[in-house]
């Protein structure tokens, strides 16, 4: 019972978040909509809530969208005051930023840690001080360090991409599948690759060629240029990240190859526009929602005001929310385009 509720919630929330979320990068953004969880009575202004927000430096499109979406979400509510600190990739600095937020006695802290393990002690300290901590994306070590965890599904991204590739290559037993991973030493990259391999295994395929880039355009170009030489024939490529995908595309264009199709990852607006146009090799991308921070803000407000998620039966906001990793193709791209991030 509880499980079905959570699953339903996840689906509703993911869809809702994708529909609303980050639009601040597009100038012609439509007026703010209501979140799935925050509709109805929950949207009514309640007691004033001060929310602190801290995230790593916005040094790539996805991370920039996280912060922007969180700020946009906070602006929607007249009863929310957001204290967003400058993003940083320095763990020490982020810890001291959170300490400052604790000293300022905010009601809740929405925290996307640069390193989950390193930020766990200070998050515990915040919880002990009676502050509601919402953990985004990168998980803390301790269950006591946060009230709610909102995270994407890296393994699920691999599963989604692998399943899509399987469907597209149905009946081709000798198909060559290539993978362009992100930074190889990160657990998230390993999870994505594991999911991809597992899903391909279900239909008797495997990853024939695998290279790793570094999430940057330049590294994507370099990795792809070598990959295309390594495999004279490819049927499908999954590229983990749409930012590095710009470089991957440049390399493919240079090589003049076109015998394969490509699946992206993360879900940038550029890539979705390309999928929509439908004239390139890019046929699909797998979303890693950049609206998690915004979800965190909405949940923090509900928690502090003592409200639950009105769409589910539970009285309390759930402990953990895992977002889904849907496959975006030409057929459903319109649904996701609005929430996509600009790289």
């Amino acid at each position: 019972m509880a499980r079905t509720a959570v699953r339903r919630l996840v689906t509703v929330l993911a869809a809702g978040a994708l529909l609303t979320g980050c639009t601040s990068n597009t100038p012609e953004a439509p007026p703010a909509q209501e979140t799935a969880g925050g509709g109805g009575a929950n949207a009514e202004p309640g007691e004033k809530v001060v929310i602190g927000f801290s995230a790593p430096a916005a040094d790539h499109g996805w991370m920039a969208a996280i912060s922007a979406a969180a700020k946009a979400e906070a602006d929607k509510y007249s009863d929310v005051e957001l204290k967003a600190v400058e993003g940083t990739n320095d763990v020490n600095l982020q810890i001291s930023q959170v300490e400052t937020l604790i000293n300022e006695k905010v009601d809740a802290i929405v925290l996307l840690p640069f390193d989950g393990a390193a930020l766990t002690p200070v998050a515990l300290k915040a919880m002990e001080a009676g502050i509601t901590v919402i953990n985004i994306d990168r998980e803390f070590d301790s269950p006591f360090a946060s009230r709610v965890t909102v995270r994407g599904d890296n393994y699920g991204m691999g599963i989604s991409a692998g399943t899509y590739v399987c469907e597209e290559l149905k009946g081709k037993a000798d198909a060559v599948v290539a993978e362009i991973a992100g930074i190889d030493s990160l657990p998230l990259t390993q999870d994505r690759s594991q999911g991809f391999a597992d899903a391909l295994g279900q239909c008797g395929l495997k990853v024939n060629n695998r290279v790793a880039a570094e999430f940057t355009v330049e590294s994507g170009e370099r990795a792809a240029a070598n990959l295309l030489q390594a495999a004279p024939r490819i049927d499908a490529i999954w590229n983990h990240d749409d930012d590095q995908g710009i470089g991957v595309n440049a390399a493919i264009k240079n090589s003049g190859r076109s015998e394969f199709f490509m699946v992206g990852g993360a879900g940038s607006a550029n890539v979705m526009r390309e999928i929509k146009a439908g004239d390139g090799l890019l046929k699909a991308t797998v979303v890693y929602p950049s609206t998690q921070g915004a979800d965190g803000i909405a949940l923090a407000r509900l928690l502090v005001q003592g409200k639950g998620l009105s769409d589910i039966v539970e009285v309390e906001v759930p402990r953990s929310i895992q977002l889904s990793a849907p496959v975006v193709t030409q057929d459903n791209v319109d649904k996701y385009l609005e929430a996509a991030f600009e790289s």
């Binding site: 790539h60 355009v217 330049e218 710009i246």
Partner: peptide
């Protein structure tokens, strides 16, 4: 040259 190769300019180039 890197602009030509990747068709982009970015603060992450030249890492």
């Amino acid at each position: 040259m890197i602009i030509a190769r990747t068709t982009t300019g970015s603060a992450t180039h030249g890492g």
